[in-house]
Amino acid sequence: MSELLWVLFDLVLAGLTVGLAWVAVATRELRRGVLLFVGLGLLLAVIWARLRAPDLALAEAAIGAGIAGALLIAALRDEIGVSAEPEDGYTASRRLVDLGAIGLLLALSWGLLDAFLLSDGVRLAEGVAERLGESGVINPVTAVLLNFRAYDTLLELAVVFAAVLGVLSVGPARPALEAGSLVLTGLVRWLVPILVVVAGYLLWVGAHAPGGAFQAGAMLAAVAVLLRLGGVAHAGLPGTAATRWLLVLGIGVFVIVGLSVMFADRAFLQYPGDIAGVLILVIEIAATLSIATALALAYLGGRPVGWEADCDSPQHRVNRGAADRGGDA
């Protein structure tokens, strides 16, 4: 394809994305906004593929559009009949915000333009390529995520953990849906094993090709979403105690691996070169399970039934009702 055709393609794709984002943000009808947002996620996945970021294309489709979309659509059900507030004319504060937005647009363009003029465009790419051989994996994105900048990923798992702790403490889960129609349950039964296999494949392939723990975790979470839509109340999650262990598994294994190499006279998370690949795979397996559990709980929207049954000693159970109203007097 000639150069010009690519430019045309880029213009159309970028224009569509911005247009879709505009409508999604501006619309007063929440349902429309959410659906457009999911569409926006898919367009972004195409852009990531176009800009040669296949790992991101997978992650965007699975997490950015998939799981986030599922969360938003489930939230829509809670807000039936609610629309975004009517926009009452062109008030002063609106004008101020618009003015600020235009100023920010210009400033950011100016800063980035200057940055591009200043930079040689190499940045860290060469450094990663040089040390890739020592990382234990071949996919450079996985090498950055789980070796060079593994600490970021550890804290990222902590962010997921924090969010799910918040979701669990805010309130009880949504009531389960009634069992779906025959076609839906049939489809679910059919898809679940396929998705589990795909998740395993994505996890395994992440070492040398696009994929990895986050994409695989999102895929497993999709299984939970499907099960829940098909009428399975617990969405495939095991009992309370096991679910708690699953939640902490990712961070726990990550930290334990990091500390064990530290006790072998290395820095925290400094894997020995010859077993780096194995350690990364172990961490990724644990992280996949934790991410899937966390996203599944997020989709339930709160505490599953019986989540806090073992939190207090028996004589205190009577005060349960008071507990659900919170601790602040």
Binding site: S181, V183, L184, G186, L187, W190, L191, I194
Partner: peptide, 16 residues
């Protein structure tokens, strides 16, 4: 094949 299955079932659900 997966898309076929998904689109057939979802159309069915929408119609129903």
């Amino acid at each position: 094949v997966l898309v076929l299955a998904a689109s057939a079932s979802s159309s069915h659900l929408i119609a129903r």
